[in-house]
Amino acid sequence: MAGNFWQSSHCQQWLLDPSDLVRERQVDFAVVTEEDYQKLFIFFSNFIQVLGEHLKLKQQVIATATVYFKRFYARNSLKCIDPLLLAPTCILLASKVEEFGVISNNRLITTCQSVVKSKFSYAYPQEFPYRANHILECEFYLLENMDCCLVVYQPYRPLVQFVQDIGQEDLLGLSWKIVNDSLRTDISLLYPPYQIALAAMQMACVVLQKDGKNWFAEIAVDTDKIQEITRQILALYDLYKTYDEKKEIQGLLAKMPKPKSQPSRPPSSAQSQDGIQGTNDQSMGVNN
């Protein structure tokens, strides 16, 4: 689907406004602070990254899985689905869409178990609790909540093009890594991938002391947006200066809003209350 970003579901439905995010997160912010919330997302982005690497997935697939993960929680509270369950589900769905070949359920679960044990025991001392049927159930919810928008545009392809265009191929390595880091922020929900690529490239220019000014001046681009992206990535690096995940994460996970397997109110009243908000199409489901 290259070259068609402007007509894509990504562009038309999934470039959100920062205020959308704040509004949707109010439920969670009542339980954890904004900073805690961010730290939790850094943790789970890392989890997806490590899981993907253990499954030998390409970075493109991992990035897509991470965006799926963020899209779900951009519309839902952390309490709706345990992120530890949603993370491997995103990996599974992304690997099917990005045509990597199907990861078998067994392999996915076994990898989750071994990754949790070997890499994340500081956060989860217990075993990975989910089985294949949990993931398959979860996959339907994920797809439904993303409104079946599965094609995600990533900054990697435009990045490669820009680097070639500017004629400084040695920028690629560093800017690629910065793009990877941007997955730990909300950036992929807020900005089109080409802007993220440009911001990463500009940051790489600064770090490597390359002069890209003329090139950046020539391409017509919204510099305010590039600055916003840069600021968010720098904020991430700042946060990391004082944040010790190994120490804090168990506390954060304990605080995190969690799913309840029991109704919090009688199901009959829950049904009729929620049903009223439905549209015409949904009325048949109420059946009362």
Binding site: P263, D274, G275
Partner: peptide, 12 residues
């Protein structure tokens, strides 16, 4: 997965 979430989505 959250019970209320399941009920709500199944109604909708």
């Amino acid at each position: 997965m959250d019970y209320d979430f399941k009920v709500r989505t199944s109604v909708e």
